[in-house]
Design a binder for these strands. Sequence first.
DNA 1: TCATCAATAT
DNA 2: CATATTGATG
Length: 428
Amino acid sequence: MSLPSNILKEREAETCYNEIESLMDHDDDEDFPTTSGIRVLLVDADPNSLTLMKNLMAQFSYRVTYYENGEDALAFLTKNKHVIDLVIWDYHMPKINGLEALKTISKEMDLPVVIMSRDHKKDTVKKSTLYGACDFLVKPVSKEVVAVLWRHVFNKTMLSKSGLGKSVGSDSGGLLGQDNDDLYQNDEAEGSKNVEDSVEQNTLEQIGDKSSSKKRRMSWTPDLHHKFEVAVGKLSSLDKVFPKSILKCMQEELNVEGLTRNNVASHLQKYRQHAEKKSNAPQKTLEDADWRNAPLVTSKPLLNSNINLQTGLRYFVNDQTAANAPIQYPTSGPIQYPLSNYLTMNNNHFMTNPLANNAPYTDPFYQPEQQQQYYPSLQFPSVISKQDHGNLSSAMENMDLISYPDSSYDQHESFLPGYNNFDQNPRF
DNA sequence: TCATCAATAT
DNA sequence: CATATTGATG
């Protein structure tokens, strides 16, 4: 098993350090960082797009090895992993698709893998990122994307690895250090059945095999939390807001099973702390207030977008529409999510694509002949911090993926790679 | 490292 | 039952 630092070590030292320095020095907008010499394995079953991408990358002096056949590519890779810096794999491949490649590569070697796809449907993006894809490119890939690709990948992999200090061995399973099999714990659990299911499993497990499996910690899904709040609301007028009464109400009136009084008590504690915190300190710090009140940054969107180091997804930090969109907790019926779709970025933050105000936006940063219209609400997702959004975040905490449009994305939408601004101390 | 959850101890 | 502490998680 190769070491995470192999990217650094195995490239020629001088090129490498020059590369780093030039990368770090360039926060200048117009200058693209050099990508020369980066050794890329490019795999795409479609010869046309393969050629296109290969040529484009050659323009930026990447050293590209390319395959149409996934098996051949993998065979090459196992022998030559030490001379490859980056793997770009098409999602839709016969035999070995992007996900298969991700699995194998993250297991057997330690290389950043970028997934490329013509579509960017819900599943494609979700699975790719969850399986540890370092980046997700939508075909046709623009030259701007290629220009900053290595910078993103490098930044992501190196930062996350050096962030843990020198420890090298522990994170070898993948970029996120997660086992693929465990990623979808919550996938089958939906809606109100969540807790019942998990608790049932617990009891079953405990009966069947006491020694091996730990009981799974329950999770307060949005739906369950909603019921909790409904129960609290009903009881509050009677001054009977105690765990026991809440539990009773939830069980009898809201058909919740499998909860214990302690579960409710624990949640109630957190719920109250949350309310207290909110009433005590509704004032934000100056800095936060400044940020929240700052005008929407639209002058150079790409330059202001960030990449999340864990998911590889882009986010944009100043979308007030999204930041201010409240989540609705009706006293009955399903929760009304705001005009947004939330992706969990990490345990602290959500990325959102507000679907409101779809007015096309022309990026002034581009030269006239290159100008294109964006749909800002979709192009530039923003981040909502949990600290600023109490009631929104508490209910959504445990969700990997809250919601997505049922239909595939608008064709104008994509997770466009932005320019990482190398903010070493990002707000998020 | 750091914040926060749910569980458990007091 | 309320509150403090713990352990796990990401």
